[in-house]
């Protein structure tokens, strides 16, 4: 027997499997025309367009993109990674909220999460390392955009939005830093808050507003918690929507160099 390529083998295995299910009324009610999950999908230019057009999530993309833009070496997928990490952080963050109270119980809750909740430690680690990674990736994304000169007309304002997104990312990370309520958290945030207090004229007021008092207490914890899980995510999602929308309105990816 002739040796099959991987593609042929896949076709042989998958031929007919699930066809009845994929052709069922139930499946066709879920997957819109052009979906690869629908029966009768074939690789045609029309279906390639439908895949994007007929799906609310993929619709973030245009149907066609510049050929040089899909090279991994051009974007390094850094913008997409930032967004993906944000999604991962949202999901793990919501999961962590089930086990966390922003009170004097916070530290005990984190300990309980690590010791007596299934996958608690893993999810907490993912949230923390993912957050550090996101700061890094967003920064690298900015550097990539700079080195490609991608902030130039007509993309000037999207760069401004991007800088705001970088700062929002930093704020998100910083407000989350306090939540474990251990010595690392409280003193890192104290240092950060002291930096903010050097602001001319309003320094003391800014620190007071940030800490909900003169120093980091459980009131600060509650304040940072609300900022972290509600306020900044809300703001950053708005700016991300503008950012993604502007990418397309400004003519897609920049370049080629």
């Amino acid at each position: 027997m002739a040796k099959l390529t991987l593609k042929e083998r896949f076709k042989k295995v998958s031929a007919g499997s699930g066809d009845a299910a994929r052709a069922s009324k139930f499946a066709t009610s879920i997957f819109r025309p052009g979906s690869p999950f629908r029966k009768g999908y074939s690789d045609s230019p029309r279906n390639r367009s439908y895949v994007v057009m007929n799906n609310v999530l993929y619709h973030l993309h245009p149907v066609k993109v510049k050929r040089h833009g899909v090279r991994l070496s051009y974007t390094l997928c850094l913008g997409g990674m930032s967004f993906f990490l944000f999604i991962v952080l949202t999901i793990t963050g919501i999961w962590l909220m089930f086990y966390f109270r922003p009170t004097e119980m916070a530290y005990a809750d984190i300990q309980a999460l690590q010791t007596s909740v299934a996958f608690g430690s893993l999810v907490r680690n993912m949230h923390r390392w993912g957050a550090h990674l996101m700061v890094l990736v967003v920064f690298l994304h900015m550097s990539r955009v700079f080195y490609h000169g991608a902030y130039k007309a007509p993309r000037e304002f999207n760069w401004v939005i991007g800088v705001i997104l970088l700062f929002l990312t930093l704020f998100l990370s910083f407000t989350g830093y306090l939540l474990p309520w251990d010595q690392l958290a409280i003193w890192a945030v104290t240092v950060g808050g002291n930096m903010a207090s050097y602001t001319p004229v309003f320094g003391a007021q800014i620190k007071f507003g940030l800490f909900a008092g003169l120093e980091a207490t459980t009131a600060t914890l509650l304040r940072f918690y609300v900022l972290h899980v509600l306020f900044f995510p809300f703001i950053i999602v708005i700016f991300m929507a503008i950012h993604f929308w502007r990418v397309r309105k400004d003519g897609g990816i920049s370049g080629p160099l």
């Binding site: 893993l122 680690n125 390392w129 993912g130 010595q183 690392l184 980091a216 207490t217």
Partner: peptide, 15 residues
């Protein structure tokens, strides 16, 4: 990364 590296958790916050 998360399976290998444990996120730090020091003693409880003490002002």
């Amino acid at each position: 990364l998360s399976a290998i590296l444990q996120a730090p958790l020091l003693e409880e916050a003490n002002p």
